[in-house]
């Protein structure tokens, strides 16, 4: 089942881009990075360049699983990992998010957030973080 991203998650990804992790079915890992990202409810849409398309096209065809983490300062200020299923539509990689994890080092590392449900997840964030959006 998919889950919508919160405004905080969306803002940090859109502002800072993301690292997108993929792997072949035998587990050979590959990463692409994009700063051209949209988030629509439960879907992270990455605009692919021709080189990125060439790099990951075959991988996505054989294994659609993807993991996404915010880039740049979002990597520490917004420590999330989004996991889901990806497909390429025209020149976009669309990842439907099915699991969300907190990746902050320490006791919260690996805590699954999506199982809280959207409202509880958003409330957790609002109580937890002082920076609900990246600074302009």
């Amino acid at each position: 089942m998919s889950i919508n991203l919160t405004p905080r998650m969306t803002d940090w990804i859109v502002a800072n881009g993301a690292h997108i992790a993929l792997a072949t079915k035998k587990g050979f890992p590959t990463v692409i990075v994009s700063e051209s990202i949209e988030v629509n409810h439960d879907t992270i849409a990455v605009h692919l360049t021709p080189n990125q398309m060439q790099q990951i096209g075959n991988i996505i065809t054989e294994n659609p699983l993807a993991a996404v983490a915010p880039g740049q300062l979002g990597s520490v200020r917004a420590p999330y990992q989004f996991k889901g299923t990806a497909k390429v539509l025209e020149s976009k990689l669309e990842i439907k998010v099915e699991e969300i994890y907190c990746t902050k080092p320490g006791a919260e590392a690996g805590a699954r957030l999506d199982t809280l449900g959207y409202k509880e997840m958003k409330a957790y964030e609002e109580s937890r973080w002082t920076d609900l959006a990246p600074r302009a």
Binding site: A21, A23, G27, F28, L65, A67, A69, V76, A109
Partner: peptide
Amino acid sequence: KGGAVVHLTTSSADGKPNIVAER
């Protein structure tokens, strides 16, 4: 200046990727 930050990507043997920031 906050030091370097990297993402470490690994995968299960059957292709489930995982990515985490490391400080």
